[in-house]
Amino acid sequence: MSSAPLLERRDVVARLLADRGALLVVTGLGAPAWDCTAAGDHPLTFPLWGGMGGAAMVGLGLAIAQPDRRVLVVTGDGEMLMGLGGLATIGVQAPPNLAIVVLDNERYGETGMQATATAHGVDLAAVASACRFRHAAIVRSESELATALVPIRNAPGPLFYQVKVRADKLPLVLPPREGAHLKNRFRAALLGARAF
């Protein structure tokens, strides 16, 4: 079992996305999407409202399509557990511009805070490492988070950080949920006139 988490998820995400510049962001469904929205809704954030298990792979397709842009996937432990195979797929492709941050509260937060496999000691960072990610680590403390922030933006990927966060139930901060709007605003912001 892991030690008591110290980090607060909205603070973690606010720091991940501070001065985000040209960063492209994909979020898993649920709390990570609310966290990213709380940090500031942005056209270059694509929040999933479904497609559970798909966030990392959406990030891979985006990273391959945009090799000169940094792609950050922010998702939860339950969502990542549903798409573990994608870590093998990403490890083989080895996109240098992709980073994945899993906000790990060890709970299915949207459905009643049931324990996920990480609550029982399943180590997602070890899975990513075994899948040939260039770097994978568990972040438990403020100092470890501070150390991770720079490589998440700049170091050669693929990178994987499993950030242990408190299992807080926070106020909902919802992004727009109309899929065509989310897609179109993202493409327009990224591609300009070529989007349509």
Binding site: G51, G54, V58, L60, R187, L190, L191
Partner: peptide, 8 residues
Amino acid sequence: AGAWLGGA
């Protein structure tokens, strides 16, 4: 989906 978001 990711490819399309990225223009591919």
